[in-house]
């Protein structure tokens, strides 16, 4: 077995071994060699902070708030695109130049929306959900238009020669686009975490972003590190879940 194949086959095992080594080095270095430092908190303090995170920062409620908004927005956005796909197709086919102009993401800094929404909705849950939905639909829409022009002509030519209905033609286009569209949920959900945590940080009332704000206010570095670890694990798990769903239901990507 060559090195490349070995790494491909044992990807998870290698990552876990690497994390184990990293944790070991962290414990030795910051618990025993450098207990007082300005780089990372002591492992024992980190463990003690878990209780504080639940007790003083109301972590469970904040975590449920942020994750619900992110994942509900992701799947709602996906289904909105699915429901209105024929309209989207109509505009893409008929008005591709206008559609290109509408790709405002080329000229618009997404983070600006955070400040605008802060003034419009303040700490309202609906406001955060609408912001998340706009971001997801925006990302998926861009991906949808890009993929539309990559649909294999062979599928459409063979189908057209069978004199199929417009609905069937649209279903071929949708099915061709679907795997990549679903993959783009992965990319969307990373940017969504970033923007929403920032939004919550600015609002300072709900969600994980507000805990970041509080921990910085109280100079509680161990809480920041804990949150970073928890978010990383959540991202890893949700990526894993999205990949499993894709392999199971959208397996045909070429």
């Amino acid at each position: 077995m060559n090195t490349k194949t070995y790494f491909q086959n044992n990807n998870t095992a290698i990552i876990l071994s690497f994390l184990a080594v990293l944790s070991f080095v962290y414990i030795i270095l910051f618990e025993f060699i450098l207990p007082a430092n300005g780089i990372l908190p002591k492992p024992s303090i980190l463990i003690e902070s878990i209780a504080s995170l639940y007790k003083h920062y109301d972590f469970l409620a904040a975590y449920a708030f942020t994750t619900s908004i992110i994942y509900v927005a992701l799947f709602t956005g996906y289904y909105l695109i699915k429901i209105f796909r024929n309209w989207a197709l109509f505009f893409t086919e008929g008005f591709s130049n206008i559609v290109n102009l509408l790709a405002i993401n080329k000229y618009f800094l997404t983070i600006s929306l955070v400040f605008i929404f802060h003034f419009w909705f303040s700490d309202n849950l609906i406001g955060e959900f609408i912001l998340a939905l706009i971001l997801v639909v925006g990302n998926l829409k861009i991906q949808y238009f890009e993929e539309f022009f990559k649909v294999k002509k062979e599928y459409l030519d063979a189908a057209r020669s069978l004199k199929i209905s417009n609905d069937k033609k649209n279903s071929i286009i949708w099915k061709s686009i679907q795997p990549r569209l679903f993959s783009s949920l992965n990319a969307s959900h990373f940017s969504l975490w970033t923007i929403l945590i920032f939004y919550e940080y600015v609002n300072g009332t709900n969600g994980i972003g507000s805990i970041f704000r509080l921990s910085i206010k109280y100079n509680d570095f161990s809480i920041v590190v804990l949150l970073v670890i928890i978010i990383s694990i959540t991202l890893w798990l949700s990526t894993l879940l999205l990949n499993i769903i894709k392999e199971k239901f959208f397996f045909w990507e070429n």
Binding site: Y155, A158, L162, K175, Q178, W252
Partner: peptide
Amino acid sequence: YIPSSPSSFPWMNVNDNIEFG
């Protein structure tokens, strides 16, 4: 018409592909 590149739909099984259209 059968094009030069494969035109069977990968999201359908053999039977559904053939019944398509």
